[in-house]
């Protein structure tokens, strides 16, 4: 007994313990999703229909929207994102703490939808990693719940004690991407635009 205590730790037992901790963490996380709804367009109505009591997103532990990204786990991007709004969305994403997930809600956030013009971002996966895509224009609440359940599965199976593969410095390695789309350079670091341009603060711009 004494020899066992003073020797090196049993690595097989440690590995077994780590896996169980991941599973427990994943189980806890998937039922306590604090979401940040970034609602910009008509998909917001379907989001509200899903979140309120008729479809009751709270059954899945996601009934508590936080309107501060620092307190949120999942970023729901709901609605069309314009190029003017994109730096704001990116800043919201950067403010969220790990672990964090992103849901693209509706075709506008998935691909740009039917917009193909000077103003619209052609899918938010060009500016941030996306975990779950919920297609539809707008998606039905059942479709949203399906996406939410898939997100729960992803959260539950994700290693919880190790940091996620993407970091603030580079391309996310395990981000879900459409086939055929090349990986995107994330504009961070000194080569990108100066930080004051990312979300222009113009309090008197309406004058």
């Amino acid at each position: 007994m004494n020899a066992q205590m003073s020797g090196p730790p049993d690595t097989t037992k440690l590995n077994w313990m780590t896996t169980r901790l991941d599973a427990a963490l994943g189980w806890a996380r998937k039922f306590s999703i604090f979401q940040y709804p970034f609602v910009t367009a008509c998909c917001g109505m379907e989001y509200m229909a899903t979140a309120t009591s008729h479809y009751d997103m709270d059954r899945f532990g996601a009934g508590f929207p936080r309107f501060s990204p620092r307190q949120a786990d999942v970023l729901f991007v709901v609605g069309t994102i314009s190029h003017k709004m994109a730096p704001v969305l990116r800043r919201v994403y950067d403010q969220m703490t790990e672990p964090k997930w992103v849901v693209a809600f509706g075709v506008c956030t998935c691909t740009g939808g039917f917009y193909d013009n000077y103003a619209t971002v052609m899918g938010i996966d060009t500016i941030m990693p996306v975990d779950i895509y919920i297609p539809g224009c707008p998606p039905r609440p059942e479709n949203v719940l399906d996406g939410l359940i898939k997100l729960q599965e992803k959260i539950a199976t994700e290693p919880g004690t190790t940091p996620k593969a993407w970091s603030a410095t580079g391309v996310p390695e395990d981000a879900v991407r459409r086939p055929g789309r090349p990986p995107t350079e994330m504009p961070t670091g000194p080569s990108a635009r100066p930080p004051e341009l990312h979300a222009p603060h113009r309090p008197e711009s309406h004058l």
Partner: peptide, 8 residues
């Protein structure tokens, strides 16, 4: 034509 602030 695209002129994004960030992204490709």
């Amino acid at each position: 034509k695209r002129q994004p602030l960030i992204g490709p």
